[in-house]
Amino acid sequence: MDILMESWLFLLLVLAIALFGKNMSLIIAAVTVMVIKALPFATKWLPTIQSKGINWGVTIISIAILVPIATGEIKFRDLVSVFKSPAGWIAIACGVAVAVLSRYGVDQLSASPQVTVALVFGTICGVVFLRGVAAGPVIASGMTYCIVSLLGLSFK
Rank of each mutant, 00 (worst) to 15 (best):
L79Q: 12
W89A: 00
A91E: 12
P86H: 10
A70I: 03
I74C: 04
T71K: 15
I69Y: 05
W89R: 06
F83Q: 04
I63Q: 01
I65N: 04
K75W: 05
G72K: 10
I90R: 08
I90V: 06
I63V: 03
I69M: 09
D78N: 14
K75F: 05
V82R: 07
W89F: 00
A64P: 00
P86G: 10
S81V: 08
C94S: 08
A87Y: 12
G88Q: 02
A93Y: 05
A64E: 04
F76T: 15
I69Q: 03
K75V: 14
S81D: 05
W89H: 01
S81K: 13
P86T: 12
S81F: 08
E73F: 07
I92Q: 01
S81Y: 10
K75E: 15
L66K: 13
A70E: 01
L66D: 06
I65P: 04
E73P: 01
A70T: 02
W89E: 00
D78V: 11
E73K: 13
D78E: 10
I74G: 04
P68N: 07
L66E: 05
F76R: 15
I69D: 00
A91F: 14
D78Y: 11
G72E: 11
V80W: 14
I63K: 02
C94A: 04
S85G: 00
R77Q: 13
I69A: 07
T71H: 06
D78S: 11
W89S: 00
S62T: 12
C94Y: 04
I69W: 09
I74M: 08
I65Q: 07
E73M: 06
G88C: 02
T71R: 15
A87I: 12
I65K: 04
W89K: 08
I65M: 09
S81E: 13
A93L: 13
K75C: 05
